[in-house]
Amino acid sequence: MTVVLRVGNRTITTKEIVSLLAGYQLLPRLLFELIVDDAIAPFTCTLEETQSAQQQFCEKNQLNSHTEIQTWLKRNGMTPEQLQTYAVRSLRIEKFQQATWGNQLESVFRSRKSEFDQVLFSLIKTDDLAVQELYFRIQEKETDFAALASQYSEDPSASNGGLIGPIHLSKCHPTLAKMLANSQPGQLWPPTRLGEWVAIVRLEKFISAQLDNLMRQRLLSELFATWLQEQFNEMGEICLFPVGIGE
């Protein structure tokens, strides 16, 4: 039986390797990577891009000399050619993502913008029947919002004067998110029921999401992850075939 891997005093044969991969739940990861390899096959890198990617890889892994690189290669069972392929792989994935979804990002962003918008707001959350009085005191500027929040709010933000955020609107209670999305900075909302609580809310700042480079990369990564999972699901069950005798 062919030995394909030696780790210390242990040898692993062709018959064992698949069983080990399955036992450690590494087969799905391997299949994901094979799907990626097929997808990025048409995308290549220039000599300059390759050299830059290798340099960045070495810097990230603190490989500062030829000796350290050779030691790393032996420890990871890789050849210099495999290291080069691995170093540029993320760049080739980026090229695939851009070619596949780059022209869709603006429409995707517009449809999901509300998920990324953030707000900074003040909150007093209580079941006290006197909440209406608190609202009027704030409205008439008799008492500072933060002081009343610290004294009366039953939300954890009370320790911070009721200030919450910045936080994504999508993470807020649906009623609260709708209120804040339709507010102007400084707008004070009268007592509003949020589930079993009653809340007084004031928007402090609305942070509108922008389709900048960071957002573009986030959307590309999400679209890629969704596509990759769909490709994996379409493959169906993983079928393992027995290794023949004498292999």
Rank of each mutant, 00 (worst) to 15 (best):
T2E: 08
G8T: 07
R10P: 10
R10Y: 07
I12F: 03
K15L: 06
I17K: 00
V18E: 04
L20F: 02
G23Q: 14
P28M: 05
R29T: 11
R29D: 14
L30Y: 03
L31V: 11
F32Q: 14
L34P: 04
D37Y: 07
D38P: 07
A39M: 07
I40D: 08
A41M: 09
T44F: 01
T44V: 11
C45L: 04
C45F: 01
C45Y: 02
C45V: 12
T46W: 06
T46S: 13
T50D: 02
S52N: 05
A53W: 03
Q55S: 03
Q56R: 12
C58D: 09
K60M: 08
K60T: 09
N64M: 08
T71K: 03
W72E: 11
W72R: 06
L73D: 10
K74H: 14
R75E: 15
N76T: 10
Q82S: 14
Q82G: 14
Q84R: 06
T85K: 11
V88F: 01
S90F: 15
L91V: 14
R92V: 09
I93C: 05
I93A: 05
K95Y: 11
K95L: 09
K95H: 14
F96W: 12
Q98T: 04
W101G: 11
N103D: 14
N103L: 12
N103Q: 14
L105N: 01
V108E: 09
S111D: 13
S111Y: 02
R112Y: 01
F116L: 12
Q118E: 13
V119D: 08
L120I: 10
F121E: 05
S122W: 02
I124F: 07
L129N: 14
A130V: 04
V131H: 13
E133N: 08
L134I: 05
K141F: 00
F145W: 05
F145Q: 06
F145S: 04
A147F: 04
A147N: 08
L148G: 00
S150Q: 13
S153Q: 00
S153E: 01
G161W: 00
L163D: 02
I164N: 11
G165D: 10
L169F: 01
C172R: 01
P174S: 01
T175F: 10
M179I: 11
M179E: 07
L180K: 02
L180T: 03
A181R: 05
S183Q: 00
L188E: 03
L188K: 02
P191C: 07
P191D: 02
R193A: 15
R193E: 14
W197A: 13
V198M: 06
A199L: 06
V201N: 04
K205W: 03
A209D: 01
A209M: 06
Q210P: 03
D212E: 06
L214E: 07
M215T: 10
Q217G: 10
Q217C: 08
L219A: 15
L220C: 06
L223N: 15
L223F: 05
F224A: 05
F232C: 07
F232R: 11
N233F: 02
E234C: 07
M235Q: 13
M235C: 09
F241L: 10
G244D: 03
G246H: 02
